[in-house]
């Protein structure tokens, strides 16, 4: 019980702080924090596979970008309202996940390489299919989202909108990972052979997880395009896919807050370093290296060591 109430208290504090943020933060910070929520959500989609199912997908940017591009193109080029464009984006991104899900037939390093290559298909498509996607320039002038005459135009309004979506997602995600299905994913991560002998068609479970992950990534993509008001091929790039998996790990894989903490640390650090140091990409590269070598269980993992109520695992035989 003690452990559980600790988590609830922390979550309430975090939500209260998030709700109060617009009262104290200036536009720069508001932009950054909104960005952290959106990337955190994308990192969460990575972590459903990474932290729970044990699959390392490196094509999450594809679902993110396809959702964002679909919404942007429908809204800007064809003039559809948000109520059509946003769900269409979600559906398009998720359908891509339904298609790409066949990658779960493979495991380990093959899965990693295949998802990298699949990710490049979308990047290549949005980059080269310029007549439809705008090529390098992308799609600009995406209007703010508006539903039934209400436009979520102001930065603060959109902040609260994103926050609401993220909290709802986190809540739903929590139910998902605590469900028998969620447990089955952790079972597969632990031992796929045993899961099969217990009666699970593991590939189908992984496939379902892959599609759900694609749905979450697509949601992040739709939120992103309305936040950014434009979209270009960078959103579909391999770099984004790697960065968000790093966020999930930096924060703490297998947790809900971890990916958001990771997004905060990563984006905050990049913003800060790039303000005074020319080689900021190199610094981010160093963060990758340092995380892998010294903090593979992430910030949440580091905190857990000192957290009350949870002992260190005893020595193994």
């Amino acid at each position: 019980m003690k452990v559980r109430s600790y988590g609830v208290v922390m979550a309430l504090i975090a939500i209260a702080a998030a709700l109060a943020a617009p009262l104290v933060a200036d536009p720069f910070w508001m932009t950054l924090i909104t960005q952290i929520y959106i990337y955190g959500l994308l990192a969460l989609s990575v972590d459903l596979l990474l932290g729970h199912a044990g699959l390392y997908s490196l094509c999450q940017a594809s679902f993110f970008a396809v959702a964002a591009y679909t919404t942007a193109i429908l809204q800007v080029r064809y003039g559809y309202p948000t109520i059509v464009a946003a769900p269409a984006g979600l559906i398009a991104g998720t359908l891509l996940a339904v298609l790409y899900g066949s990658a779960v037939r493979t495991r380990g390093v093959y899965f990693i390489l295949i998802t990298i290559a699949l990710g490049y298909i979308i990047w290549g498509a949005v980059y080269r299919w310029a007549s439809f996607t705008g090529g390098d320039n992308g799609i600009t002038n995406v209007p703010p989202p508006s539903v039934a005459g209400f436009s979520i135009a102001s930065q603060t309004a959109y902040y609260y909108f994103v926050l609401t979506v993220v909290i709802l997602c986190a809540f739903g995600y929590r139910i998902l990972i605590r469900s028998p299905f969620g447990l089955s994913l952790r079972g597969i991560k632990g031992s796929e052979s045993r899961m099969q002998s217990l009666g699970y068609r593991t590939t189908m479970h992984l496939y379902a997880a892959f599609v759900i992950s694609g749905l979450i990534a697509s949601l992040a993509g739709v939120l992103y395009v309305y936040y950014n008001r434009f979209i270009n091929p960078v959103a579909a790039s391999f770099q984004i896919s790697v960065e968000v998996s790093l966020m999930a790990i930096v924060g703490g894989s297998g947790t809900i807050v971890g990916p958001f903490i990771g997004a905060g640390v990563f984006l905050g650090l990049r913003n800060w370093v790039s303000s005074f140091f020319e080689l900021h990409t190199a610094v981010m590269g160093a963060v990758f290296i340092a995380t892998v070598l010294w903090a593979p269980s992430g910030i949440v993992g580091l905190v857990e060591r000192w957290r009350p109520g949870i002992g260190k695992p005893k020595d193994q035989p």
Partner: peptide, 18 residues
Amino acid sequence: HLAQVLLTVGIAFVLGDV
């Protein structure tokens, strides 16, 4: 392999920037 990918991507970022 995931650690390898992330690590070597990080290395590539550093080398590229240098």
